[in-house]
Design a protein around this nucleic acid. Structure first.
Lengths: 169, 169
DNA sequence: CGGCATCCTTAGGGATACTG
DNA sequence: CAGTATCCCTAAGGATGCCG
């Protein structure tokens, strides 16, 4: 509570984040639908086949098919040939690098849901292989400092005026 | 490409992530609508008043009103009294801690959009106040290691069986 | 098994006009 | 300025059935 807002400048509302130029807005055009993120969740959980996507994401086949098609054409998934020994060649859905780099979005959503919406700690945990420690999403600057929300400035790319992010922690 | 999938176990599809128990799914119930994230984006950019939310997020007033109402009742925003000198008391919308902690989700979306959908680097940049270095979203384990997607294991909370996250980098 | 076709319902969202 | 009321359109998504 008690939002400590430290203005360090003024970010012009027309300074480039509204509507189409905004990367958040653009990202939402691609993954804005709920079903899209559920499909991606399954892809990160290791699902590769059509029927599994539909049933595990809890979607009807037509919806799953539509989303998978979009994800292919947006380059987040790709079809890959595989062959079970003694069977004919088939195809399954694999994450591309573009799709795989969405993982922090899902991880951040999961972390927030675990914190604010789950009874316990949430049913799925992320761990660092080898070290086995819990993995969290965090903000860190290029100098290596962990940054909390009170220390963030927003800068518009053009003007490089800065404004702080409202802090409510 | 060349997804190096290292299975380290088997995550039972019924092991707790499907449908309602899943924190991602729950989070999407709250912030799944496109307009909700646009409203939150504006809140992080410093918007506090109704008309600004509507116009800056590019939403019609009825939609903005509906989303703001939901965000209030979900506890992501709260109304706060304020008073401009010589004017009567008014209220504006402020992020609660619950809402503020969604910032990594927006930051991750922005980062992905900057990387894969923007022409240049994207119109808005995050910087660490003081240090002025660029701020990025990353995954880090409790032991302090930066974790890339190839080193992630998923563990179901109940069984603690582990499975790797498919890596496409 | 991996879809597509069809039909239907609901939710998201815009436009316009109006009120406190 | 901060909304609400109404109306309408489109997109998201489920159910069922069919097809290669």
């Amino acid at each position: 509570m008690d939002p400590a807002v430290h203005m360090t400048g003024a970010l012009d509302p027309r300074g480039g984040w509204v509507a189409e130029e905004c990367s958040i807005s653009r990202a939402l055009e691609v993954i804005g639908a709920r079903s899209t993120l559920l499909i991606l969740r399954e892809a990160f959980y290791g699902t590769t086949r059509f029927a599994d996507f539909a049933s595990r994401a809890g979607l009807s086949e037509p919806v799953a098919a539509a989303r998978l098609r979009e994800l292919l054409s947006d380059g987040l998934l790709e079809l890959q040939d595989y062959q079970d020994p003694g069977k004919r060649t088939r195809q399954d859905y694999r994450l591309t690098p573009k799709g795989a780099e969405l993982f922090p979005v899902l991880a951040a959503l999961m972390q927030w849901g675990d914190r604010w919406l789950a009874e316990s700690d949430g049913p799925v945990e992320l761990r660092h292989r080898g070290c086995e420690q819990h993995v969290a999403v965090q903000l860190r600057c290029a100098a290596g400092h962990e940054v909390d929300s009170g220390e963030l400035d927003l800068a518009s790319g053009a003007s490089h005026q800065a404004r702080s992010v409202p802090d409510a922690t």
